[in-house]
Amino acid sequence: MREFAMSHAFRLAAPVVRFTSYDSASPVLGRIGPLETRIARSRLEVRAAQALRYRVFYQEMRAKASPLQRVRRLDSDQFDRLCDHLLVIDTSLPGTVTEQIVGTYRLLRQEMLPAGASFYTAQEFDISTLVARHPDKRFLELGRSCVLKDYRSKRTVELLWQGIWSYVLNHRIDVLFGCASFSGTDPRALELPLSFLRENARPPQEWQVTALPARRVPLGEGGSCADARRALAAMPPLLKGYLRLGGHVGDGAVVDMQFGTTDVLIVLPVANISERYVSHYGSDAGRFAA
């Protein structure tokens, strides 16, 4: 189950002409015991994150790799060079830092996109109209979230969110968005949780986003969600986490045959994040600060 994955492979609307510039002194954003989180400091660290993604998405979760991916054993695309890569590092492991990376999240700020290019989620959802409705807002796309199986614990997730919250504050982000995935490609088998999302997580009009017409499947077949408890139990932890933070779910879902998933779009205005979670991580992202 792709619990810790949000999005997949996308094409650019225009050629990529810029690359991430790495800060070799990028600070540690949080620490719990031997685990710490920070932004990748080098191309080697990004490559290690890509190898981790391949291990989780293609070897564990059985996504369909291209011949090139099978040879390189990397999950990579053209967007990697535009993004900042948030890492979780277990400093107690032997070897170099690249051998200690146990989790990663890919962060794409709106201003990092070249002229004429779209967010990668635009392959599945109509992101452009959302952005156009809010020209005064700063958008951050979250994607490629994954954690090694042995590290899928509350403290690892808390560290990832510590890093994201620090990043949001540092870059004055107003809106977070990205895909969350259900395992399976038959929306009928997901009728209960999809119906729950349709009834309980739809956004107000200003934050509405629709799946692309050619790919859209409904959030449930229109029937009422008969068992909210079972519906929530059937949802990936990542999705439930976004809902608890105050996230909305866009209109429609998209089936991704390559990854064997059914994807929904999460939109999370930073202003929606409840005071409970702001207090938990600190209004200055200081709770787990190094």
Rank of each mutant, 00 (worst) to 15 (best):
V131W: 07
I32D: 13
R43I: 09
E60G: 06
A117D: 04
A48H: 02
S76Y: 08
G178M: 04
R229E: 14
Q59I: 14
L142A: 04
H280R: 15
D263H: 08
T98W: 02
Y22S: 04
T210Y: 13
V217T: 09
Y167F: 15
L232M: 08
V209C: 03
Q208M: 14
V254E: 00
P204I: 12
D80S: 09
D136F: 08
Q100T: 12
A122S: 15
L190H: 02
R18T: 14
G223S: 12
R198N: 07
S274Y: 07
Y58W: 13
D186S: 13
L169T: 01
L82W: 06
L197E: 03
L197S: 03
L130R: 03
P187A: 11
G103K: 01
S224D: 05
L130C: 05
L74T: 10
V255A: 05
L197G: 05
T121V: 11
V56W: 07
G250V: 02
A49Q: 07
T156Y: 05
P204D: 07
H85V: 12
D23C: 04
E191W: 07
A228K: 15
D126P: 08
Q208D: 12
E111T: 09
T91N: 14
G95L: 05
R244Q: 07
E36T: 14
G220P: 03
G103E: 02
S128P: 08
P34M: 13
A228E: 15
H171Q: 12
R244N: 09
A228M: 09
G143W: 00
R229W: 14
G33I: 15
V28I: 14
R73A: 10
L197K: 03
P213Q: 08
N200L: 04
E45P: 06
C179R: 02
P218V: 10
T98C: 06
I164T: 02
H8F: 09
G241V: 06
D77E: 07
F182H: 03
T185C: 13
V71A: 13
L142Q: 01
D90W: 14
R72Q: 14
V17P: 03
W161N: 01
T96S: 10
E99A: 06
Q208F: 10
S21R: 13
K64Y: 06
I127E: 01
S183N: 10
S128I: 12
V131Q: 05
H280V: 11
L190F: 10
L219H: 00
L35R: 07
V56G: 03
Q100L: 03
L44H: 08
V147H: 01
S166T: 03
N272H: 13
W161E: 01
G282E: 11
V254S: 00
S195W: 05
S7Q: 13
R55Q: 14
